[in-house]
Simulated assay, not measured.
Amino acid sequence: MLQTSNYSLVLLVQLALLTYDLFVNSFSELLRAAPVVQLVLFIIQDIAILFNVIIVLLMLFNTYVFQVGLVSLLLERFRALLVISGLYLALSIALHCWILNLRWVSSHRFVWTNGLETLFVFQRLAAVLYYYFYKRATEYLGDPRLYEDSPWLRNAFARARQ
């Protein structure tokens, strides 16, 4: 069972990773003259997104709802987060590869193609959705009803068995 002190630590780690992601999304363009620094920031950002997904999955596996076998109930509740997280990670990796491919050789020139601009916009839109759904999921995972037996869980279990 997830204790309050453990949940606070997990929440702090999640928010730190989200803050780093937001920081890189906001300020990475200022470092376009230093492609090596940008490469390191992008790699850490992609790893942070992956770690956030892993943390949410571990928290889902830790719930009583998962342990009694109501995985479909959890997937129904967190499907949007999982889909958006996968999409955001894919768009981020694609954007980072494209940016670094265009700017690695000529880092002193401003290179911005139409395709890169389109990918940039979609990645930033996915980032906003990712932040929203992730924050909502972390708040929902703090609900103590997910970690203990309760009447609504018994009702959901009875409906699932029918």
Rank of each mutant, 00 (worst) to 15 (best):
S5A: 13
Y7S: 07
L12P: 05
A16S: 15
L17R: 01
L18A: 10
T19M: 12
Y20A: 13
D21I: 12
D21H: 15
V24A: 10
N25Y: 13
S26L: 14
F27V: 07
S28A: 11
L30N: 04
R32Y: 15
A33S: 12
A33M: 04
A33K: 15
L39Q: 05
L39Y: 05
V40H: 07
V40T: 10
L41G: 02
I43K: 14
I44Q: 03
Q45H: 09
Q45Y: 07
Q45V: 09
I47M: 11
I49Y: 01
N52M: 15
I54M: 14
V56N: 01
L58C: 12
M59K: 04
L60Y: 02
Y64P: 00
Y64I: 01
F66M: 13
L74P: 00
L74F: 02
E76F: 14
A80K: 11
L82S: 09
L82A: 12
Y88E: 07
W98C: 08
I99N: 00
I99S: 00
N101P: 03
N101W: 13
S106E: 09
S106R: 15
S107M: 02
R109P: 02
T113D: 08
L116I: 04
E117Q: 10
L119R: 01
V121E: 03
Q123T: 14
A127P: 05
V128C: 11
Y130A: 05
Y132L: 14
F133G: 04
A137W: 00
T138R: 01
T138I: 14
T138D: 04
Y140F: 11
L141R: 00
G142I: 01
G142H: 08
R145N: 11
L146N: 00
Y147S: 06
E148F: 03
S150M: 05
R154M: 09
N155T: 11
A156C: 06
R161Y: 05
Q162I: 08
Q162R: 13
